[in-house]
Design a protein around this nucleic acid. Structure first.
Lengths: 343, 343
DNA sequence: CTGAAAGCGCTTACAG
DNA sequence: CTGAAAGCGCTTACAG
């Protein structure tokens, strides 16, 4: 009986073509030992001839000690180089284990993040890596995870007991403020993400703590936070520097898009040599602008790599208590952060 | 009999808990009509109580007219902003259809690309989007695709009959060269990717064609191609500009990483005001450098969006002949491309 | 409106 | 060394 040619061949078809049982095909396809040379050859030929590609879904359905076949990654936005570098680091770790990465952007929307995690669980990813938009574990569908391992990246929601890898944002912010103080600044502003986001809140806290430790005045109109696009940051910072009659002499830009927006605003106002700036996260070509942009680099590729390693360790059955891995780099001085106070 | 609590609940468990048949649970979970209010309620309660999450693998295994649940995307490197923006565009298209994207980087390695496509087919993605490293369809495992739709992105392997979306690289390169000629240049160099890559080859051809059309001399030592990292491009272009005693007065940089490397080299040599430069693909902060970097922008997000739309149209059953979608933008003049010849 | 049986494409557990 | 039967968690096709 002729079968429709368009249908994808199954193990059954290969077995029929090779004149062996289904189980023998399974053995050959999975490189199990103990099949005679002759049968291996016949099966391999049938596989090649029919262009048989095993169905991973069916395979993992019954499989007991399955090695991970895919992992999930939820972040706010892949098109941000910070996250795409993390993804690349993750990919490399996964690749070594013949594992693929299902990734998705949440745009820092709790609802969306929750839906994405749900979708990933439905697809039965072996594990999850999440840059959570929220502190509220409810949104993380934690209960639905069951035995699925989870690693938090660049965040640590309250009262969780999962592995996490992140930049030491508090120490980073303190270092940036201290750097500016060391160069004579007393009037220092802060521009950063909405403090609903874990990392943003730590940075802001670091700013406050460093300012207080140095007994410097904090003015609320020198602190600008929000959930903005790069373009919106340009507009926001234009207003920030324009309206203040008593401007800060230096600012901390607590995220790569914030830095870009701020630098653009400073240039438009012709203030790039007047107001000192240190940015968190390195930005491309920051060294070729005048003055060069001083930054505290993050190591996104390394963050992704480490998160991946932690996840796979759990998948390999590690039972150690939750690990909290912190990364911190040194400030790269390029000029903008070393400008003296303009008044 | 007590079951282990760690095991993920199945439809069977929900049925038992709700005191209904498996099929009724299936009906409720899939929002099928014709189940009594009473049973819907009992099933919903059991689902919530057990935190049941359906298994997408099992669901799609038997499902006949399944709507796509995941698509695959193969590119050279997610950490390149060009590709991560494409991915984001794809994601948005997929999101509207409750579809997830499995993506992976090939590093322009044919062998790796082939393995990735094979892995995606094994996972039975509904369709594929590929930025192919190669012209050789053999590496694309085309035969293994069977009925799985494929859309080529930023490339068009020889003799294929698939949908494709890409930048008009030939016209783009011609436009860049013409722009430089218009500003008085006759000695124009070309820096770009290895011409084994489809898009790179078209750009180089565009350069040759535009130079020939203008009857300008082409010197092979003014053409530098290769498969290099951004860092390597800085080194390569340092050498390029340093060694030539008869330097070109202008260059075309045919890719974002090439542009970055070249600009850095020009600045290190202090030649940024001597040698004109137009880059393909916009680069972040290119407007704030002195001189500003003139570019021919690409529209990666739009490329991803369109490729996604084409793929889903096929998945919806469209039978039209293969579509070839070409995008082209206008040059953004910022200074570097409008410098007069230095001799 | 509800459910028992067969099947999707594989693996497991067992028998020869 | 090889294979027939049962099962993974669902959907389909059918019966009541």
């Amino acid at each position: 009986m002729q079968k429709p040619i368009s249908r994808r061949p199954t193990m059954r078809d290969v077995a029929d073509a090779a004149g062996v049982s289904l189980k023998t095909v399974s053995r050959v396809v999975n490189n199990e030992i103990g099949v005679s040379q002759d049968l291996v050859l016949r099966v391999d030929q049938a596989v090649t001839q029919l262009r048989y590609v095993p169905d991973e879904r069916a395979r993992t359905l019954r499989l007991l000690d399955a090695r991970p076949s895919s992992i999930g990654f939820v972040m706010s936005d892949v098109s941000n180089p910070f996250f795409s570098s993390i993804l690349r680091g993750l990919e490399e770790t996964a690749r070594a284990r013949h594992c693929l990465v299902l990734s998705a952007s949440s745009d820092n929307d709790d609802q969306r993040q929750s839906e994405l995690i749900q979708s990933l669980i439905q697809r039965r990813v072996a594990g999850l890596i999440v840059v959570s938009s929220s502190d509220d574990l409810h949104w993380l569908a934690i209960e639905d995870l069951r035995e699925t391992p989870l690693v938090f990246l660049d965040c640590e929601p309250a009262e969780h007991s999962y592995d996490s890898v992140r930049t030491d944002h508090h120490a980073g912010a303190v270092a940036m403020v201290t750097h500016l103080i060391k160069h004579g600044h007393r009037h220092i502003g802060f521009l950063g993400d909405d403090s609903g986001i874990f990392s943003a809140r730590l940075r802001l806290q670091g700013y406050y703590d460093a300012m207080n430790d140095a007994q410097l005045p904090i003015r609320e109109d020198w602190v600008r936070t929000g959930h903005l696009t790069p373009q919106e940051w340009t507009t926001a910072t234009l207003k920030f520097f324009d309206s203040a009659d008593e401007r800060p002499t230096a600012v901390v830009a607590a995220q790569n898009f914030v830095t870009i927006g701020t630098v653009r605003a400073l240039h438009q106002l012709g203030l790039q040599h007047q107001i000192a700036l240190v940015g968190l996260d390195d930005i491309e070509l920051g060294d070729l602008i005048t003055p060069g942009i001083s930054v505290l680099p993050q190591r996104p590729f390394e963050l992704g790599r480490r998160a991946g390693e932690l996840l796979f360790k759990r998948l390999d059955g590690a039972r150690q208590p939750a690990v909290r891995d912190l990364l911190l780099s040194d400030i790269v001085a390029r000029g903008s952060g070393e400008l003296p106070p303009s008044r």
